[in-house]
Design a protein around this nucleic acid. Sequence first.
DNA 1: GGATCTCAGGTTGCATACAAAATGCACCAA
DNA 2: TTGGTGCATTTTGTATGCAACCTGAGATCC
Lengths: 221, 221
Amino acid sequence: METHPPLPRDRELDEGTYAQVRALITSGELAAGSWLREKTLAERIGVSRTPIREALNRLSAEGMVEISRNKGAQVVSFTPDDVAGLYDVRAGFEPHAALLAVPRLTDQDVDRLAELAAAMEEAVRSGQLDSLSALNSAFHGLFVDRCGNRHFATALQTLMRPAVVAHTFRKYSPEALNRSMLHHAELVAAARARDGEWAEAIMRTHILAARNAAGARHDRH
Amino acid sequence: METHPPLPRDRELDEGTYAQVRALITSGELAAGSWLREKTLAERIGVSRTPIREALNRLSAEGMVEISRNKGAQVVSFTPDDVAGLYDVRAGFEPHAALLAVPRLTDQDVDRLAELAAAMEEAVRSGQLDSLSALNSAFHGLFVDRCGNRHFATALQTLMRPAVVAHTFRKYSPEALNRSMLHHAELVAAARARDGEWAEAIMRTHILAARNAAGARHDRH
DNA sequence: GGATCTCAGGTTGCATACAAAATGCACCAA
DNA sequence: TTGGTGCATTTTGTATGCAACCTGAGATCC
């Protein structure tokens, strides 16, 4: 008996409801602070409330949305101090991840980094600042994924995902934007040389520069 | 006999399905690797499958359980390398959390730390090694919670929660166990003096000692 | 005898229905 | 006008039913 051919319509479920809701947030379609109504999202994505609730719970655990009991979920909004804290912490964690990851990178990984860096430069040239965020988080995410420690990776992703919400390249001056691209290129070079310490150093530089570019310097208390 | 010392119920008390499921894991009642059947848990806790599913999703996002699609959830299990990696990362970042947290502690916070440290010593004296894990994670969690950076706190908790599953004081030698208690006492002293740098130093010592006591030394490449 | 197929049991994924809680607004009184 | 009160609507929280899927045991075929 030949089996039923699988209905060829499952392409719309790329990665599931969770990814779609997250995309609505990272794309900026749902701004920081806006409410995420279960029914609205359910109709928009075309599923029932149940998978929406699961997605919101997961996003809440990851820090991208905040849920108040019996009141619903809203996209996290950041005080300037939150943003500053985020950069501080990233400045602490991500260079360490780079140090761990670089010696483990495959040649394909390095090529992918180069590809992403090139795509970002192209995006800057053509003024497509919106697509930068996704590329940038893929670039940084690769270092995190390859750090060789499962739990460090998930913790770091928990840390970085809300950063995507807060981070916008639109605040950058042309000069800062250019410097950021140079950092990416140098990270690729360090990766290609499999020099973890070099990567660690430039990553730290990169994040501290970003902290300034985003106007997120801390006032020392 | 007095078997009810001030248990760590400062956060959400047992109200909440999530907390109850987590308690089953942290208490060791559900060992690493064992399956978490939704129906079984639902009957055991006395709710329907829906809140159980939400709890499992959240625990999955926090790294304490692993969910395979259509197959169910199981308590996360650790390779020795995972455990070693966890200690490495904690050694890197928890001392920093202590440095940030100590100047912000209230007097009540310090009293709570002292209370927890005393409860742990009592547990050691009476051989109740099982209750140590919960007390210990409450103790460390307080430093993390008070570090003054929301995102740093959630990331570190994501990192530490699975560690609770892996961490067992049963591997400790009596000597190591005793040293660990002394570290806690010294952390309380540093906290009472509001000396962040002292706390940072002893916290780092504490974690590196724990790494050895748990037999989780890395081969550094 | 060994491998494959079929089917039954059980488990998860999703949709729907209902209960509980919160919000907003009209209305009333001071 | 202003402040409070009660009701109606909206929204979330939970329970339950059903379909899809995975797993394992027994039958079947070579």
